[in-house]
Design a protein around this nucleic acid. Structure first.
Lengths: 247, 247
DNA sequence: TAGACTAATTGTCCATTGTACAAAATCTAA
DNA sequence: TTAGATTTTGTACAATGGACAATTAGTCTA
């Protein structure tokens, strides 16, 4: 670490502005915490781990850990998630950074929250490294969480609801070929609202990037539904024009 | 704290966190960077400082500095802004955290971006501490900025446009008693779009928390406009119902 | 095989909103 | 008194949103 002086000011305005050695600032750490929302057939859950180390040993927590000194934040989020839950290839987005001074008992650690939405049955999380357990928890009954993870979870849930209407994060939770009813259920579950079937259908049909196939649903005990497919290329066009479901 | 091993921790996935002394993680720092958008009569600017210290000495930059070890992030943003530009009492919001490994030449420093919108003429920034100059820069011609500040600025401008339609951050840039035309100009400037006068007016009038006064504009060389006032209490009611200008 | 059942799909009505554009009103300045 | 400038109101029509009903096309069961 270079022995340079800080650009940071002293707390006391009378202090020489160069009076704090820069080393004093380089004593912090940061972590990433991953909020993985798992959707499956009308239920929304979140992936938690049981911690196997202090602090908060045995508490349920978001999968999260310290970022390596030479690791980019985004990369770290993937690495940490894999380290603890063995799951990979989940695209996460940054949500918010939490920096209360006392949020971590071992020192100054701020944490950057990341989130993603996935189809629960696509993943097979199992604990590794210091995680004792992994478990999908229903959002309706979340246990007491370690650190300030409840706040991170809340903020991420808010973001999820907004994102669902602005970006096609729902592609991850619907089959490649899906019915409009399946699609509607995703929105109803996550936004915690009911929609009129007919009106929802009309709205979807205006979204030209959801293309009607000529195939039908199979093995249902009622009139089968036509299947639809998401067309990424067409979506990109519409997105440029500022598309938004806006429910 | 445990003793430190030499060298940086390996990214080798076979290493678990126990093989790296925790000290190795507590060698980072974080900073806050403030994006202060200043609006005045149809112009949008951003407050920059000229740096008086290395790194990037003499470069223009966002007002920003390292966070003290025992300082909350939000508090730090206010403190840093005041330290460098002498301005106070500006409500800022967190935007995004930037954490590229090599973004800071002195070591691992991630930065949390904050932003605010203010009436430019309400503030009187002047440089203090290690800031050589402060200056409002038009968004149309931004000089080369220090660090990754251009990215921070871009992200904040995006956020500003969204926020303008969702939250009454515009109260800071309109007089207590304002005309609809003044109000419209704020939106046109920041969103970089023109609106039809009549239609804009109708939209505003649906927002019940903008109350028509019985006073008139003075000293204009044309038909004077009625003045309006923002009613915070009424706003809070509508906000609960999910109000959004949605231009 | 007919009718019951279930859910998909289509259609209708009506109030609200968005948009383009025009007309009228009200002040100042000369 | 009139021109100029800008506010304010109005109008017409298309698009949208939401409540709700009718029709359709399958399976299931008697």
């Amino acid at each position: 670490m270079p022995k340079q002086k800080s650009g940071a000011p002293a707390l006391n305005p009378k202090n020489d502005i160069y009076s704090i050695p820069i080393d004093a600032f380089f004593k912090s750490a940061f972590s990433v915490d991953c909020v993985i929302f798992g959707y499956h057939e009308g239920e929304l859950k979140v992936l938690l781990i049981q911690r196997g180390v202090e602090p908060y040993e045995n508490f349920w927590a978001l999968p999260g850990d310290l970022v390596y000194p030479h690791e980019d934040l985004d990369v770290s989020a993937y690495r940490v998630l894999k380290d603890l839950t063995s799951i990979e290839d989940v695209k996460m987005q940054q949500v918010h950074t939490f920096g209360q001074v006392d949020r971590h008992p071992l020192g100054r650690v701020i944490t950057i929250g990341y989130m993603a939405l996935v189809e629960l049955s696509d993943l097979n999380p199992h604990p590794s490294n210091w995680a004792k357990q992994t478990k999908w928890h229903s959002l309706k009954k979340i246990p007491k969480l370690a650190f300030d993870h409840k706040s991170i979870l809340d903020a991420s849930l808010n973001r999820l609801k907004i994102l669902l209407q602005e970006e096609p994060i729902w592609v991850k939770v619907i089959p490649e070929k899906f019915t409009i009813t399946q699609f509607q259920l995703v929105f109803e579950t996550i936004l915690e609202r009911k929609f009129d079937k007919g009106n929802f259908r009309k709205k979807i049909q205006k979204a030209k990037f959801l293309k009607k196939l000529s195939e039908m649903e199979q093995n249902v005990r009622h009139r089968p539904s036509l299947l639809y497919k998401f067309d990424k290329k067409l979506y990109d066009k519409y997105k440029e024009m500022g598309f938004d479901f806006d429910f």
